[in-house]
């Protein structure tokens, strides 16, 4: 094992050598001259927060999915999306959904392949997240809706629902952003490749890892077709963690991007993974515990159905 790992390490070094060795300042220079300026964000004042509260507060949106049962199709997925306001007296908005492949009439998805089921699962999750955001936007009229994840996901998984959300927010003048913990873009990498600095494509997270100072960010104008005209992103180091997070904002609101970056920066604990605390809180609340799920199933399904379809044979032993 030790040898295998050492070998792996060496190979990574060989392939990515020039990236790993890239001087922090050289990369910054490259970015400044080929991508865009490097900005420095600053945390909002207390007055700013108080004002945001007055303007309707912030709503965080996140979803979760839990599976109970065994191998396909004998399982049921529990989906839950939550929109939660920082304003104390505002009720949480929740959408629940369940899905089990045994209800797919012709078992088409099941018979095809697991990738399809996986897609279906993502689509349901994305859709209820966007739906709960729409509901929150209409009913609660917050100052800002902060989604957990990139807009791209919603555009791919549930385009029309997503567009409805975007329209509502534009109409109601509600800011809409997405915060991405694991960015998957390769905009700087593409540029490097294109200009012949590297001979392979690198992801932005690899390139930027540890190379921005805390609070620094860059703005990315993308030419990607799916995204064109829809959104603008920032990549930022928001905490002591060297990781970079992404922030998406709809194009019509891009004038507010720097204000949003400041807000995210202010809400992110210094010694955290870099995610604003509000999304962390929504994340921990949206999770359905295993016990709760079990309790639901046992109370609402006939025991015959429950036993036959959803109890793993393993746990029966």
């Amino acid at each position: 094992m030790e040898n295998k790992l050492k070998k792996f390490n060496d190979e990574v070094k060989k392939s990515y050598g020039n990236i790993l060795n890239l001087e922090k300042n050289n990369l910054k220079n490259f970015i400044a001259s080929n991508i865009g300026p490097i900005y420095k964000s600053s945390k909002p004042s207390k007055e700013a927060y108080l004002n945001y509260e007055k303007l309707g507060g912030i709503i965080g949106v996140d979803g979760s999915v839990n599976r109970k049962g065994g191998a396909s199709p004998h399982y049921v997925d529990f989906f839950r999306a939550l929109a939660k306001s920082t304003k104390k007296q505002v009720e949480d908005r929740i959408i629940n959904e369940i899905y089990s492949p045994i209800l797919d009439k012709d078992m088409k998805l099941v018979l095809e392949d697991d990738g399809e089921l996986e897609n279906k699962r993502n689509q349901i999750l994305s859709k209820i997240e966007v739906e709960v955001a729409i509901d929150a936007a209409k009913e609660l009229k917050p100052f800002l809706i902060m989604m957990d994840g990139t807009f791209i996901r919603y555009i791919i998984d549930c385009k029309s629902t997503w567009e409805e959300l975007r329209d509502v927010c534009e109409r109601e003048k509600i800011l809409l952003i997405g915060v991405i913990e694991d960015i998957k873009t390769h905009i700087i990498g593409s540029k490097l490749l294109e200009m012949g600095y590297t001979d392979r494509l690198s992801y932005d997270r690899e390139l930027l890892f540890g190379r921005l100072d805390v609070g620094e960010y860059i703005v990315i104008e993308d030419s990607d077709k799916t995204r064109a005209g829809q959104l603008t992103s920032a990549l930022m180091r928001s905490s002591n963690n060297p990781n970079i997070i992404g922030i998406d904002i709809i194009d019509t609101q891009r004038g507010r991007l720097s204000e949003m970056v400041d807000l995210i920066f202010g809400l992110t604990p210094e010694n955290s993974r870099g995610v604003p605390i509000w999304l962390d809180i929504v994340d921990s609340e949206v999770k359905i515990s295993h016990n709760t799920m079990e309790a639901y199933l046992e109370s609402y399904l006939d025991s015959e159905i429950y036993e036959r379809y959803f109890v793993e044979t393993r746990s029966k032993r």
Binding site: K43, P44, K46, Y49, L50, Y52, E53, G57, I58, S85, T86, K87, K88, G266, L267, T268, P269, I277, W278
Partner: peptide
């Protein structure tokens, strides 16, 4: 400081 910010946003 983050807790303070949250509080200002209405959430203690």
């Amino acid at each position: 400081s983050v807790l303070e910010s949250l509080k200002a946003l209405g959430y203690a």
